[in-house]
Design a protein around this nucleic acid. Sequence first.
DNA 1: CTAATACTTAAGTTATAACTTCACTAACCT
DNA 2: AGGTTAGTGAAGTTATAACTTAAGTATTAG
Lengths: 119, 119
Amino acid sequence: MRGAPKKKAKAEKPPSEIDRIFYALGDPTRRAIVEMLSEESLSVSQLAAHLPMTLTAVGQHLQILEDSGLVRSDKAGRIRTCHVATAGFAVLEQWAREHRNVWERRLDRLGDLLDQPEK
Amino acid sequence: MRGAPKKKAKAEKPPSEIDRIFYALGDPTRRAIVEMLSEESLSVSQLAAHLPMTLTAVGQHLQILEDSGLVRSDKAGRIRTCHVATAGFAVLEQWAREHRNVWERRLDRLGDLLDQPEK
DNA sequence: CTAATACTTAAGTTATAACTTCACTAACCT
DNA sequence: AGGTTAGTGAAGTTATAACTTAAGTATTAG
């Protein structure tokens, strides 16, 4: 029973993209997978060979990484080959840039207003 | 019993800075706190007023955020005022940039080799 | 001095994330 | 066909993250 980001059975909002990305990267094993896939695309078995856990567990982590848009995979025959997906990283980098510096962020917002005076 | 990033009682390595940062941001409540502090510096009570949990819980989240270097705080009298700290964000942005694009990363490494032909 | 405010600390509860094992299916090999 | 390899799916286990309540300690207000 592993799943997408859900904290408690509370308000039960659907997690946003940035929610899923940070949730996915919050686990060190999943970051290790991303690191490995940054070097070269690998199959599920190849990833599992470098991790101290079962193939099943690796598959579960990959599911979460794919849901977050950080990893993409395609299956040829019985082999699933996994790659990093640039999309998720763009979202992450954007978030980091927006929050890096308070003053800078305030200037950005001011800039946005000036760019599109009405909408 | 809340604490720093520890998954199981396994190899028990001390978590790195990037470990702590992703762990901290993996929780939606802590990201909400960071968002709020990006607007303006706030006391613990002021943060708690906008969150559906007790003051104690907010204090626990703040501890984790401070350990990660994403938030800084100083206490004047009985009031602890919290601010975003740029340091943690620089680390995060750097990580995102390094992983954004595989090919780009490979080129970077190639560039490094060319820059310093010998150690 | 007393009372309220602003936090802090300790200890307990509960949902669930991160695993496991077992059973299964599909593809490739001989 | 039979066996092995690659992966998937379901269900159960366990540690712990995210909370809580209750009882502190300082600080400020009246």
